[in-house]
Simulated scan of single mutants.
Amino acid sequence: MNEKILHLLGIARRAGRLSLGNDAAIESLRKGNARMVLLAANLSPRTASGVRQAAEEEEAAVVTCRATMDEISMALGKRTGVVAVNDAGFAEKLLALCKAQAAGTE
Rank of each mutant, 00 (worst) to 15 (best):
L39M: 07
L9F: 03
G50I: 05
N2L: 09
G21K: 15
V83S: 08
A61H: 07
V82H: 01
M1K: 10
G89Y: 04
E27K: 13
A84C: 02
G77W: 11
Q53M: 04
Q101D: 15
Q101R: 09
G21C: 07
K4C: 04
R79M: 14
H7W: 05
G10R: 05
R13I: 02
S44H: 15
A96H: 08
T80H: 05
T47L: 09
V83A: 11
A61P: 00
A102L: 15
T68W: 00
E92G: 09
R35N: 09
L38F: 00
M1C: 03
N2G: 14
M69C: 12
M69N: 11
G104V: 13
V63A: 14
N2M: 05
A40H: 10
L6F: 02
A41K: 09
A96G: 03
V62A: 01
L29C: 05
L97R: 13
S19M: 05
S44C: 12
V51L: 04
N2E: 12
E3Q: 09
Q101A: 06
T80R: 13
A24F: 12
V85N: 01
A12G: 06
L29D: 09
S49G: 03
V37C: 04
L43V: 13
A75R: 11
V83H: 02
S49T: 13
G89E: 11
E106L: 11
V63H: 15
N22Q: 15
E106W: 07
S19L: 02
F90A: 10
I72F: 00
V85D: 00
L97Q: 07
I26E: 07
A54T: 09
R66F: 01
K78S: 09
E27T: 15
H7G: 09
A24Q: 08
E92T: 11
I72P: 14
Q53Y: 06
L6M: 15
R13C: 02
A88G: 06
P45E: 12
R66T: 10
L29P: 02
E56R: 11
D87F: 00
R17F: 00
D70V: 08
S28T: 12
R52K: 15
S44W: 12
M69H: 03
L6R: 09
R13Q: 09
I72M: 15
G77H: 12
R35T: 10
A25L: 01
R35I: 01
L39S: 07
A75W: 01
A54C: 05
M1Y: 03
I5E: 11
T64C: 05
A75F: 01
I72Q: 12
I72H: 04
